[in-house]
Design a protein around this nucleic acid. Structure first.
Lengths: 339, 339
DNA sequence: TTGAAAGCGATACCAT
DNA sequence: ATGGTATCGCTTTCAA
């Protein structure tokens, strides 16, 4: 069943059918009705490939996960983000294609295919921070794109991010205000902007409250539960009384390590995480954390990308979401209301 | 840059360039070389939409998550599965499109779009068990498809599944052999084939070992951590000494509930989970569980779907993976080797 | 408001 | 082994 056949059945030209399908204004109402009836009866569906070829738009956007994003499958952050992206695509009648590059080899080989003409209208690329060779691929590909997370070394790129610095600042300041003195941090991977920014927020908070920063209390994590578990073990001999952990997933690992050593949270060590994903609520004790609007983040990525596709890359869009400290029990201060 | 232009630059016809690109045999070697050089120099990339239209193949497969799959964003099972699917698509030069339907309303509205001609060559659809109206949509769509998980009420569909019955049987039998007498189970959602099959395996094991089944010891869960947390609270008054939990994610919720009540695992209550995902290893104590080959599962889904696309739906393919009991500490029997 | 017709950029058949 | 060309099914001018 093609446009042509529908046109014939409705007794109009294929151009008119096309107009009806695409909701063009200047079609007489009874003609529109007749065409819609035929479409209904025949179950006609337009051929997407033909439409793409003729219109030079695919109505597909790609989500690219570079191989350097190591925690795509272990951190619930990404499924949640993907949900927001997918939902927003649906609402805009776009299709989402997923490009996950498991290794640098695959990435090198396959990346050029992502930017082939007639495949996608634009792409969302997960930021990886330093060494972002992926972003240079995209730029070469000469295709509209937007970065999820602050890209480094790429001043002209549009991106959506949360204010990781201020989020980490809030978390750390909170621990300071509760009277903690030896506040450690387990960072994210420090070759990512997220990891770097959250560490910077920690440093600023410590500095602003006139403590000296003890570099030994800074342990690099890698956004995994296991990594932070070991990082905690390394920290314990230094007797911290609080830890700001750069993700909820990592905070779970911290709590596991502390439980093994019979160290009480929050009495002996207070914990604040980052993300506010389900593991935070389900932790024992429930985790105080920095909430970021992940779903809206995904929504905004798509919305902004569609804007870039439509109106061009200039000027670069820079969208930064604020975060919110969610106080539960792991920081030692009971929340005034149950959250 | 188009085929035509490449042809002109190489001094051959567009048909020949097409042959070179698609690795046809009968092209003289020096001609092939010349064309490849021009492609290299110009950075030519074929237009996917045009190719799809002309060849009537898109080289795209769709992954459909019906709205009834409620745990897509909370269970690490799905990211892992998606990884396997994505990787296998990459290897076969296919693109993966993701269709997540968050609500029945969206699903009804959007499903017909998935099967529009020229969009995908075939789809993988996550099974939801009973009331699989989604699968009937696919069948109506008249497009090659394969079901992830055993479909119910759809005898003719090809599918890939794991042997959930025998997996649950192994888990429950293990608890019996360890001398547990009051073995409860927290099931998956019982409107899914996974939930039903794992419960059946539990029943068979109890029956075969000449216990009577105590229906009160069967609590329905919904594959979420929180759901099993509450299910556990409901079970405790019945004094079970073991629980077979139908997923690792749910087992985490069980352990949380037990910890709150100061009930020791495995001393007071032994636990066996299902899946063998990272949370199982990271649990305290490490979780005995039924391992299923999730990544290979994804691989096989794609491989089989490509076979269906190529060779037609008949006869229906039925692929069932075996499972393996992984003994850790939550069942009360120390593993002979550290795993 | 509608129709005719020229593309869009490949593939694949038919010749040679 | 190579070229010519019809064709895929739609969109989008242009003219009426």
């Amino acid at each position: 069943m093609t446009l042509e056949e529908v046109a014939k059945l409705a007794g109009v030209s294929s151009a008119t059918v096309s107009r009806v399908i695409n909701n063009y204004p200047h079609v007489r109402n009874n003609v529109r009705q007749r065409v819609l009836e035929v479409i209904e009866e025949t179950g006609y569906q337009p051929n997407i490939a033909a439409r793409s070829l003729a219109s030079n738009r695919t109505n597909v956007i790609g989500l690219v996960i570079p191989n350097s994003v190591s925690n795509f499958f272990t951190d619930p952050y990404f499924p949640r983000l993907t949900e927001g992206i997918s939902h927003t695509c649906n609402e805009n009648d776009y299709v989402l294609s997923l490009f996950i590059f498991n290794s640098q080899e695959i990435e090198r080989k396959l990346f050029p295919r992502v930017t082939r003409p007639g495949l996608v209208d634009g792409i969302i690329i997960q930021s990886t921070g330093l060494n972002d060779e992926t972003i240079s691929y995209v730029i070469e590909g000469n295709i509209p794109f937007i970065v999820a997370g602050r890209p480094m070394n790429t001043p002209l790129a549009s991106f959506v991010d949360v204010d990781n610095v201020s989020g980490a600042y809030k978390a750390t300041s909170h621990l300071i205000q509760l009277g903690r003195k030896r506040i450690a941090t387990i960072t994210g991977a420090l070759d990512t902007s997220v990891g770097i920014d959250r560490l910077q927020g920690y440093r600023q908070a410590i500095n602003n409250h006139a403590f000296a920063i003890d570099e030994a209390l800074i342990e690099e994590g890698n956004f995994t539960e296991l990594g932070s578990y070991y990082a905690t073990k390394r920290l314990l001999p230094l007797n911290p009384d609080a830890i700001f952990v750069a993700s909820d997933t990592m905070a779970i690992g911290v709590m596991r390590a502390l439980r093994e050593e019979n160290i009480s949270v929050p009495k002996d060590i207070a914990i604040v995480g980052f993300d506010d994903l389900p593991p935070a609520i389900n932790a024992v004790p429930p985790l105080t954390t920095v909430r970021q609007p992940i779903y809206r983040f995904g929504f905004k990525l798509v919305e902004t990308l569609l804007d870039v596709i439509k109106n061009g890359p200039e000027p670069p869009r820079r969208i930064i979401f604020e975060t919110e400290l969610v106080i539960r029990e792991s920081c030692g201060m009971r929340s005034p209301v149950v959250s």
